[in-house]
Design a protein around this nucleic acid. Structure first.
Length: 451
RNA sequence: GGCCCCGUCGUCUAGUGGACCAGGACGCAGCCCUCUCAAGGCUGAGAUCGCGGGUUCGAAUCCCGCCGGGGCUACCA
C-alpha cells in the first residue's frame, strides 16, 4: 500500500465563537500532522450563510494564532467555491446518483410527523422520484440517491471498525434551495480534493461519516486513509458544552489570564495522555509524544480547577522577565520597571495573570484603618521611624526591619502583622516586597494613619 | 422511535485475564515549613471499576442482557 503524504485539516464553521472543543480538535490535528511531518490545513466551512459571520471567522484566526496553532495551507473558504460543488452535483445527477427534489419544507415536516405518529423510522419518501412528483415549482434541492442495500464500512482510529446500513439513511440534501452545498456534501468533496489523508474531527460527526463516504464513492474519489472521531468536551453538569451557558470562547481565556502554553497543555490532556505520570508538557514534547491511539473514547468534563493548576505551574516556570512582559496588559498602570519589581512578589501566588491585579490591588486601594492594640501601635511606630530613612528597596527594607525586630526581641509576626494590616488591610506578599512596591511616602502615610 | 458512540475516586485519567482488596494528577482535609497569603514537603479521606448474568482456577479487563449519558436522524455544521 502506497504511503500517502499526511495532510489533515480543521474545518470550523464561523457560526459562533470558537469553542474550547474546536481548539482541541485543531490541537490534535496539528500534533498529529507534526508528528508525521504532514501538513495542517485550515478550511472555513461557511456554507450556512444565515449564521456565518465575519466576526466569528476572525475569532477562529485569533484563537488559533494565540494558541500557536499555525496552518500550513489556507484558509480556504467554502463560500468561495460554490461553483465547484454545483459542478459535482450536476455530475452526480447525470450519473443517476442524485436528483432534484421539489418538496417544500412544510411537506417534508408533514412526512416526518406522520412517520413519528406511526412510530416508523423516518426516511425521505422519494416522492420526487415518482410520477406523483410536484411539477409546477421552481425551488428545488439536490438530493443524493442512497444506493439500495449498501453497507458502509470504515475504520476509525479511535472507535475501531465501524459499519452502517445504508438502507437506514434517507436521501440527504446535497445542494440547498439557496444554491449552497450542505456540510455533508461540501466537506467530503473538499477533503478529497485537498487530498486529506486523515479526517480528525469531533465525535458529533461520526454518524455523518457513512453519508459522506457514500458521496465520495459515488464521485469516484479516494476515501481518506482514516478517520478519527475524538470525544466531546462536556460542561461540569455533564451536558454538552454550550456557547451560551458556558462562556468558552477560546480567546476569552487570554483575557482571563491564562497562558497559551497552559491552555495547550490542558487541552492536550483532556482526552489524551501519554501513559506516563507526566502532567506538564511543552508543545515540542506534545508533538513528539502525541498518538491518536491513546486518545480517550469517552467525553471529558472541562475542569477549570485543573486548568488553573496547570496555568499556575506554567507561570512559576517562566523567567522573570518573560512573566513581566506577559503581565503588562493586566497591569497597565505599572511602568516596566515597577512590573519587573512586582514579579518576585507575584510569581508563586498567581493562578492566572489576572490574579496579579488582585494581589496588587492594595497599591491603588487604601485599606480601612485597622483596629490595633497598644502594643501593635508601639511596634508600628518603631517601624515607621526606621523606615523613614531607609533606602526604598526590598533588601534594605528587609535588613532594617530585621535589625529593629532583633533589638526589641519581637517575632516576625509581632512586627509584620500590624504593618501589613496598616498598609494592605489583608494578606500580601512578604512584607519587604509589599512595602517596596508602594511609594515610600504612601507606605509611611498609611502606617501613620493607623497609629 | 431508529441507528451509532460512550460508562474506573467529585473531575482528568493509568489499567488490554493473575504483580489491582485498583496507581497518578487536580480538588478536598490534616500536619510540617513559615511574617500573612502562596509555593514546597509529608499524611489522609475518596472508586463494591454503571448494574445483572455468564466464561475462567482467576475479570476493571472476554461474552450476553439491562440501565444511564451523549451524538446523528435538518434545505446547522
Amino acid at each position: 500500500m502506497a504511503e500517502r503524504p499526511v495532510r489533515v485539516r480543521m474545518a470550523p464553521s464561523p457560526t459562533g465563537p470558537i469553542h474550547v472543543g474546536s481548539a482541541r480538535t485543531a490541537l490534535f490535528n496539528v500534533l498529529f500532522a507534526r508528528r508525521q511531518s504532514g501538513k495542517f490545513i485550515l478550511r472555513i466551512d461557511d456554507t450556512d450563510l444565515e449564521r456565518s459571520t465575519a466576526a466569528d471567522e476572525q475569532f477562529i484566526y485569533d484563537g488559533l494564532d494565540w494558541l500557536g496553532l499555525h496552518w500550513d495551507e489556507g484558509p480556504l473558504r467554502q463560500s468561495e467555491r460554490l461553483d465547484l460543488y454545483r459542478e459535482h452535483a450536476t455530475r452526480l445527477i447525470k450519473a443517476g446518483h442524485a436528483y432534484r427534489c421539489y418538496c417544500t419544507p412544510a411537506e417534508l415536516a408533514a412526512e416526518r410527523e406522520a412517520a413519528q405518529r406511526e412510530k416508523r423510522p423516518y426516511k425521505y419518501s422519494r416522492r420526487c422520484l415518482t410520477p406523483d412528483a410536484p411539477s409546477d415549482r421552481t425551488d428545488f434541492v439536490v438530493r443524493f440517491k442512497v444506493p439500495e442495500g449498501v453497507k458502509i464500512e470504515f475504520d476509525d482510529l479511535i472507535r475501531g471498525p465501524m459499519s452502517f446500513d445504508g438502507d437506514l439513511i434517507g436521501d440527504p440534501v446535497l445542494i440547498k434551495t439557496d444554491g449552497f452545498p450542505t456540510y455533508n456534501f461540501a466537506s467530503p468533496i473538499d477533503d478529497a480534493l485537498l487530498e486529506i489523508s486523515h479526517v480528525i474531527r469531533g465525535e458529533e460527526h461520526l454518524s455523518n461519516t457513512p453519508t459522506q463516504l457514500m458521496i465520495v464513492d459515488a464521485l469516484g474519489y479516494d476515501r481518506p486513509e482514516a478517520t478519527a472521531h475524538i470525544p466531546l468536551i462536556l460542561a461540569p453538569d455533564r451536558t454538552k458544552l454550550s456557547k451560551r451557558r458556558h462562556p468558552a470562547l477560546i480567546t476569552q481565556f487570554r483575557e482571563w489570564g491564562y497562558l497559551p502554553e497552559a491552555m495547550v497543555n490542558y487541552l492536550a490532556l483532556l482526552g489524551w495522555n501519554p501513559g506516563t505520570e507526566q502532567e506538564i508538557f511543552t508543545m515540542e514534547e506534545l508533538e513528539r509524544l502525541f498518538d491518536l491511539a491513546r486518545v480517550q473514547q469517552s467525553g471529558a468534563i472541562f475542569d477549570r480547577e485543573k486548568l488553573d493548576w496547570i496555568n499556575a505551574t506554567w507561570i512559576r516556570s517562566l523567567p522573570a522577565a518573560g512573566l513581566a512582559e506577559r503581565l503588562r496588559p493586566f497591569l497597565p498602570e505599572l511602568t516596566a520597571e515597577q512590573l519587573g519589581r512586582a514579579v518576585p512578589a507575584l510569581q508563586e501566588r498567581m493562578r492566572t495573570l489576572a490574579d496579579g491585579r488582585e494581589l496588587l490591588a492594595y497599591l491603588w486601594t487604601e485599606p480601612e484603618r485597622p483596629p490595633l492594640n497598644e502594643e501593635e501601635k508601639e511596634r508600628l511606630a518603631a517601624a515607621v521611624a526606621v523606615l523613614r530613612t531607609v533606602d526604598w528597596d526590598p533588601e534594605a527594607i528587609e535588613r532594617s526591619l530585621e535589625t529593629l525586630r532583633e533589638s526589641h526581641g519581637w517575632s516576625r509576626n509581632q512586627l509584620f502583622k500590624p504593618i501589613r494590616q496598616a498598609v494592605t488591610g489583608g494578606n500580601s506578599p512578604p512584607i519587604h516586597h509589599t512595602l517596596a512596591l508602594l511609594p515610600q511616602t504612601e507606605a509611611l502615610a498609611r502606617m501613620e494613619r493607623a497609629l
